[in-house]
């Protein structure tokens, strides 16, 4: 497993009660994303646990894109990945963050 954490700038999530939400299942080529409350209101804290080694640059690019598309400031994302492709990661991030926005 390769593990790292990131803190990326993002528009603050307006949802005050952003409780833990879970999206996706850890299975081959798939991942789960747990959304919870983070630290600073204008940052998104992200923890990545992935079975694929050596793709940190790709992760950073996909995650930077996602938190720029959504209001993810003040949130913490924890990811368990079993070898998902960047497109699948991007889709799951959209699902997880849109689920919060829909409920806001």
């Amino acid at each position: 497993m390769e593990r790292f954490t990131l803190s990326l700038p993002s528009v603050p999530c307006t949802r005050a009660d952003a409780a833990a939400a879970l999206c996706g299942v850890v299975s081959s080529g798939n991942l789960e994303i747990l959304v919870g409350r983070g630290g600073a209101a204008d940052r998104c804290d992200i923890e990545v646990n992935t079975s694929a080694h050596g793709f940190r640059d790709t992760w950073e690019a996909v995650l930077t894109d996602a938190v720029a598309r959504h209001a993810a400031g003040g949130l913490a994302l924890a990811i368990n990945d079993a070898g998902a492709t960047p497109a699948v990661v991007s889709l799951r991030l959209d699902q997880a963050l849109e689920a919060l926005e829909d409920r806001a």
């Binding site: 833990a20 879970l22 299942v25 850890v26 789960e32 646990n49 079975s51 368990n80 990945d81 079993a82």
Partner: peptide, 22 residues
């Protein structure tokens, strides 16, 4: 005992395999 409690498998971690929060 939901996902946010992160009750993950210590055995999978010891084997360096992906865990699931639930």
């Amino acid at each position: 005992c939901g996902a946010h409690e992160r009750l993950t498998s210590p055995h999978l971690a010891a084997l360096d395999l992906p865990a699931a929060f639930d």
